[in-house]
Amino acid sequence: MTYKLILNGKTLKGETTTEAVDAATAEKIFKQYANDNGVDGEWTYDDATKTFTVTE
């Protein structure tokens, strides 16, 4: 399945997608991606749209 991440960081904003077997796997990938890019904030997930959002 395709999952989407919306980044609302102070210095980085944008979107990315990943292919993952489930939401938990996608979350791990996205949290590593956000960490690698210096984004740390409040996480939400919308199962209907398979979208994670992180807001600093």
Rank of each mutant, 00 (worst) to 15 (best):
T2V: 13
Y3M: 02
Y3K: 01
Y3A: 01
Y3N: 01
Y3I: 02
K4M: 07
K4D: 03
K4E: 04
L5W: 03
L5M: 05
L5E: 01
L5I: 04
L5A: 02
L5Q: 00
L5V: 04
L5K: 00
I6P: 00
L7P: 01
L7R: 02
L7D: 01
N8L: 10
N8R: 11
N8E: 12
G9M: 11
G9T: 14
K10A: 12
K10F: 14
K10D: 07
T11G: 11
L12K: 12
L12Q: 10
L12T: 11
K13R: 15
K13A: 08
G14M: 14
E15F: 14
E15H: 11
E15Q: 11
T16Q: 10
T16G: 04
T17K: 08
T17A: 08
T17F: 14
T17L: 11
T18A: 11
T18W: 05
E19A: 09
E19D: 10
E19G: 06
E19L: 14
A20P: 01
A20E: 03
V21R: 08
V21K: 13
V21T: 13
D22P: 01
D22Y: 04
D22W: 03
D22G: 04
A23E: 07
A24Y: 11
A24D: 10
A24H: 11
T25S: 13
T25I: 08
T25N: 08
A26T: 01
A26P: 00
A26E: 00
A26H: 00
A26G: 02
A26I: 02
A26V: 03
E27M: 12
K28I: 10
K28W: 09
K28M: 12
K28Y: 10
I29D: 04
I29H: 09
I29A: 07
F30Q: 00
F30V: 02
F30E: 00
F30I: 01
F30A: 01
K31N: 05
Q32K: 14
Q32I: 11
Q32D: 09
Q32L: 09
Q32E: 10
Q32G: 07
Y33M: 05
Y33W: 12
Y33G: 01
Y33E: 03
A34N: 03
A34L: 09
A34R: 01
A34Y: 03
A34S: 05
N35E: 15
N35P: 02
D36S: 10
D36W: 07
D36G: 06
N37Q: 15
N37L: 15
G38V: 04
G38E: 06
V39D: 02
V39F: 11
D40G: 09
D40H: 15
G41V: 02
E42F: 12
E42D: 13
E42V: 14
E42A: 10
E42R: 08
W43L: 03
W43G: 00
T44Q: 10
Y45P: 00
Y45L: 02
D46V: 06
D46L: 04
D46E: 08
D47I: 10
D47M: 09
D47A: 14
D47H: 12
D47V: 11
D47Q: 11
A48Y: 11
A48L: 15
A48I: 11
T49K: 08
T49W: 04
T49E: 07
T49Y: 05
K50H: 14
K50P: 00
K50T: 04
K50S: 06
T51I: 07
T51L: 04
T53A: 05
T53M: 09
T53R: 07
T53V: 09
V54H: 01
V54F: 05
V54N: 02
V54L: 09
V54P: 00
T55F: 07
T55K: 06
T55G: 05
E56W: 13
E56P: 05
E56D: 12
E56R: 04
E56A: 08
E56M: 08
